[in-house]
Design a protein around this nucleic acid. Sequence first.
DNA 1: CGCGATTTGTGCACGTCTTCACAAGCGCCT
DNA 2: AGGCGCTTGTGAAGACGTGCACAAATCGCG
Lengths: 256, 256
Amino acid sequence: MSQHRHPGAPGRAGAVPALPDLPEATVARLPEYLRALHNLADTGHETVSSEGLSAAAGVNSAKLRKDLSHLGSYGTRGVGYDVALLIEQIEYVLGLTQRRAVALVGVGNLGHALAGYDGFASRGFRIAALLDADPSRVGEEINGLVVRHVDDLPTVAAEESLAIGVIATPAAAAQQVADQLVAVGVTSILNFAPCVLSVPEGVDVRKVDLAIELQILSFHEHRKASLTALPATGGSALTALPGGFAATDTQEAIGT
Amino acid sequence: MSQHRHPGAPGRAGAVPALPDLPEATVARLPEYLRALHNLADTGHETVSSEGLSAAAGVNSAKLRKDLSHLGSYGTRGVGYDVALLIEQIEYVLGLTQRRAVALVGVGNLGHALAGYDGFASRGFRIAALLDADPSRVGEEINGLVVRHVDDLPTVAAEESLAIGVIATPAAAAQQVADQLVAVGVTSILNFAPCVLSVPEGVDVRKVDLAIELQILSFHEHRKASLTALPATGGSALTALPGGFAATDTQEAIGT
DNA sequence: CGCGATTTGTGCACGTCTTCACAAGCGCCT
DNA sequence: AGGCGCTTGTGAAGACGTGCACAAATCGCG
């Protein structure tokens, strides 16, 4: 609390200072803070208050302070947080001090877009290889990288230190690709295929499904529509529905 | 709950059966159940147990039962759920009985991919318009649709009943596009730009940020590395983690 | 040098989500 | 018909996440 996060822990040669184990919800927000901080830094801000940063990140300021306190953060009461220092801290915790190599499998529609997405490069990652199972795609050059066959994975893994794999294949191929990735030592997978992957313990999988996001929005649309469709005779007294009115407490709306 | 009302019957005119207001966490999982159910239906299954469905969707079976119970579901004790009926139910609740029109703004790298993504069409949505602010892109044809200028939004909205907008522009343009979408009556936005949008109350925004997903994975990589880096030395002193092996209790592993 | 303005860090209470464990219900088999 | 095995639906307990409100800490200024 009071002191640094230099946990005298297992001192072990300047090795890794044993990460505090953060709540998952906090981890999920750190990248957002980081992005906001970079914006602030680019616009010349040297310090920022929790109020200011939380607004830029779209969260509650108390939540932000609590999140930062978890990583034993460096704020100064009465002043705020040092932007540069906080960036450094968060990047360290997220493991972004080394630029991680990512293997992208599947260069179809989506894979193409991902390969060309500069958000990866600019935020700590390097696409180390593009792979595909379709021989007709092998050899194609995208964004300066040549597509290789997915069976070359072992070779690629030998060249690079691969820890993260991105799957952008059709659902039918995803599980097999996941197995291949795991086989060459990948321990984190970002899956864009609409299916559930099964992987050994110790391997993290995160899933992004574009259609699911839309379906969630659709639900809210449906609900909004069914509410406004209610006659409501006069307003306030819409007796009927048990708790019907509560409809809009959702903070989904903005974030502040 | 107790009484069966013929639910599905989208033909059933008039009174919307008043959507139960579901927990947000449940809503977020329904699409996943739906996908799993479609798979089951395609492979000839007529019924499925909560155990089976939960496995296919990558969640805990008790959670699944509770989720389904929230929508007053139709299961038969000793048997399971009727696949076709459950599909109908979930699609109804999610508002997928009508094919919703979506406007996609920004046909750059990512926008291109989204425009060509058939997962939208196959799961209840129809891309009604492609828009971009760059005049040199206007007129281009993608997947059978011609790109129009973003200033044509009012016209598009007049032609179609737009409720959902997708933003795939650079961050700098996102807020302005969001404002334009809101102005023509869009009340749900899926935002791929790495920035926080501010919108009026009543408008839902969901954000998808590819780099953030990677950064979250990076954190877990970093943590795994810092753990394995610890010397064996009895290991007991593992800073915080009681029982180091527990590292994977996080349902991250497969589920969610 | 002390005071007031400001902002962090956090104790606490509250709400949401998850998980267990089990009673109630259903169909099948004898 | 009756019992038995299987599966749903749910009460209750606990874990987790959130937000308020305030004490502690710091700076700037007179």
